[in-house]
Simulated scan of single mutants.
Amino acid sequence: MDTEALRSFVRAAELGQFRQAADELGVTQQAVSKRIAALERELGVRLFARTARGVELTLDGQAFLPHARSIAAGVERAITAVRPGSRALRIDVLGRRSAQAVVLHDYWRAHPETDLDVVTLRVDDPRIAVAAVEAGEIDASFRTVTDPAVLPPDVHIMHAFDSPLELLVGPGHPLASARRLTPAQLRKHRIWVPGIAPRSEWAEFYDQLATDFDLRIDAAGPHFGDEVLLDTLAESADVATLVGARDRYIWPADHDLRRIPVVDPTLVYPLSLVLPGTNPHPGLSGITAHLESLPRAPEPAWLPPWATTPRHGERGTPTARGTRPRAR
């Protein structure tokens, strides 16, 4: 059934004239007459009777009106739900307690008028998130595409912010009393990062980190959730993990876990934002401006090679600094 014909019928019924309905809908009176005639043929009934003052509903038209009005309103709601600027800004984050979610929450607190919908796609392959941005299913995604060949020409990637890493340990760990640590001090210690997914950006990150600093990154076993990870750290004298400085973790007071900054160089997980190159949601400009205002990680800083070279479609790359110079 033609939804434009339904809209024409509803407005003509409410206004009592085809001409006024046509003016409101931005079409000719002839177009409205044709739409309603086609609708009557499809239904097999007369919907209007002509009068000296315009038109009035027949009994069949009166019976049909509430249903037609409901359908037309539903179509309008459906269109509004996907039209940029008339719906919430949908941004994908890796987790509700991740640094990305924290940064978005900080922005929303400063701009509470923003209609923001924070979603989690729950996919490991960043190419799936890129496809969702390209299709308009989401407006942006905090993902990093390390292979420039998979980035479509109408999708862009910008540097979002730096996430310095911290070592998280329990009270019985040999490094628990340290106030700061260098990467060299982490050697030979078991750094447990369960659930590193193949083809994910963090898999590439930890592979390069282990190679450059001769670290023992252990991804053994499935990831049963943050609670199990934190329980294990609290009870262990030899297991540690790495977390982002902005990542939120909550544990019981008797766990007595310690977050220790890693410096000289600062180990940086660079976070990126994937966004469309055309017809972006109007709310994205405020988000990107906020991201560009965030402070960079303390120098000297280490970043993986894919974060220090230009990538196709990338914008907002930070200036060169640290132990690995960044190309503009």
Rank of each mutant, 00 (worst) to 15 (best):
G195V: 09
I196N: 03
A197D: 09
W202C: 11
W202M: 07
F205D: 04
D207A: 15
F213I: 01
I217Q: 10
A219I: 07
A219K: 08
F224H: 10
G225Y: 06
L229E: 05
L230T: 04
D231I: 05
T232D: 06
A234Y: 01
A234V: 02
V239W: 09
A240K: 04
A240Y: 09
A240V: 09
T241G: 11
L242M: 11
L242N: 06
D247A: 15
D247Y: 14
D247L: 13
R248L: 13
R248C: 04
I250R: 15
P252E: 10
A253G: 04
A253M: 13
A253V: 15
D254F: 13
D254W: 12
H255G: 06
H255T: 02
D256F: 07
D256H: 09
L257Q: 04
R259S: 10
P261V: 07
V262G: 01
V263L: 05
D264I: 04
P265M: 08
T266K: 02
L267N: 05
L267P: 01
P270L: 02
L271D: 02
L273N: 03
L275N: 07
G277I: 03
H281W: 01
L284E: 01
L284I: 02
S285Q: 15
I287V: 14
A289M: 11
S293Y: 03
L294W: 11
R296G: 14
P298I: 00
P300G: 14
P300V: 13
A301P: 03
A301F: 02
L303R: 15
P304H: 00
